[in-house]
């Protein structure tokens, strides 16, 4: 059974309330354009879209502070964008241009940005979890109080040894990690109940002695509240926190996925819980959003996408002579 659509008043002042909407719309339009450009052959390789899951990145990232670290997965365009990476740098990266955030070395799955403390973009499921714990350990040892490392991963990662080892070590050493599990119910095509003996992921997290919070990942308010609470607990220096965001991806796992493993009816039902239209309706119902304002936000997102595409189109290819550049750190750096 799928829960009813998120409802109720949005408890935020206009700036945050509309900011969350704008964040989700920017991500949605970026992802839709990426799919289109994939079809046109401008973007190649693997492309994993976040359509349907926007509330998770939008709500969670607005709960973080600028000094925090973010570790993400191969479905990370939203996290990069909402942490502050220019959309053009993301698009140029997907084009493989050297103006891309990773000079075209990484593509869609490997967005990195030192300036916003985004540590990838990791295409090994669960691969980012030990890394996140290590960043947090460095912060502890360097006595950088007040910095939290937010680590995003899918529920598929929960089956990996890396999840169990990292949760145990982070809890054992009380490392400031906010584990953000984006549970979209399918690890590629394998449903959670077909891969886990215990499908309540908070029960697993609690077994490590970690605070565990479950939140409706289709409701940006619920996400933001949970993330803010989780971050505060972690920052208080107590121990790591695990949040399970129950969400759903509306599109295929990647551009190669024929979606044989789920019914169209299920997808349609989840779309009634779509994070953007349900949230817009709530804002309108409480008089915080007019149709005119909505269209303004929509136009701004589309304009940003158009500029990102233009930036990527105008980008240049890294010279082949630079192939081995950055294999090792240059002397004196």
């Amino acid at each position: 059974m799928i829960a009813p659509p998120p409802s109720g008043p949005v408890p935020y002042a206009e700036e945050l309330a509309l900011g969350l909407l704008a964040d989700m719309l920017r991500v949605r339009r970026l992802e839709e354009k990426s799919a289109e450009l994939y079809g046109a052959g401008k973007i190649r390789g693997f492309l994993h879209l976040y359509v349907g899951e926007e509330a998770v990145a939008a709500g969670a990232i607005r709960a973080l502070e600028p000094q925090d670290n973010v570790v993400a997965t191969y479905r990370e365009h939203a996290h990069a964008l909402l942490r502050g990476m220019p959309m053009g740098a993301i698009m140029a990266e997907m084009y493989g241009k050297q103006e891309g955030c990773s000079r075209g070395r990484g593509g869609s799955m490997h967005l990195f940005d030192a300036s916003t403390r985004l540590y990838g973009g990791n295409a090994i499921v669960g691969g980012g979890l030990p890394l996140a714990a290590g960043l947090a350990l460095a912060d502890r040892l360097r006595q950088r109080a007040g910095r939290v490392t937010a680590c995003f991963f899918g529920e598929g990662a929960v089956a990996e040894g890396a999840f169990h080892e990292s949760m145990n070590l982070a809890a054992l050493w009380r490392l400031p990690v906010l584990f953000c599990c984006e549970n979209n119910l399918y690890a590629m095509g394998t449903a959670l109940e077909r891969s886990e003996s215990q499908t309540d992921l908070c029960v697993k997290a609690a077994a490590f002695g970690v605070h565990a919070i479950k939140a409706d990942g289709m409701d940006v308010v619920a996400v933001h509240e949970a993330a803010a609470r989780g971050r505060a607990q972690v920052a208080a220096g107590d121990r790591p926190c695990f949040i399970e965001f129950l969400t759903y991806r509306f599109r295929a796992h990647s551009m190669f996925d024929p979606e044989l493993y789920r019914d169209k009816a299920e997808v349609a039902q989840w779309k009634t819980r779509g994070p953007i239209h349900t949230y817009s309706a709530r804002l309108k119902a409480q008089g915080m959003l007019t149709e005119e304002r909505f269209l303004e936000i929509e136009r701004a997102a589309q304009e940003e996408v158009a500029q990102a595409v233009a930036f990527a189109e105008a980008g240049t290819w890294e010279p082949v002579a630079d192939l081995a550049r950055d294999l090792h750190t240059p002397e004196g750096q």
């Binding site: 030990p130 890394l131 960043l135 350990l137 360097r142 040894g161 080892e165 145990n168 070590l169 054992l172």
Partner: peptide, 18 residues
């Protein structure tokens, strides 16, 4: 603990973290 993947990854993260 006996977590080679975990503590090696933690070492990597700590190295990146300074």
């Amino acid at each position: 603990p006996l977590s080679e993947l975990g503590f090696t990854g933690i070492g990597i993260g700590a190295a990146i973290g300074g």
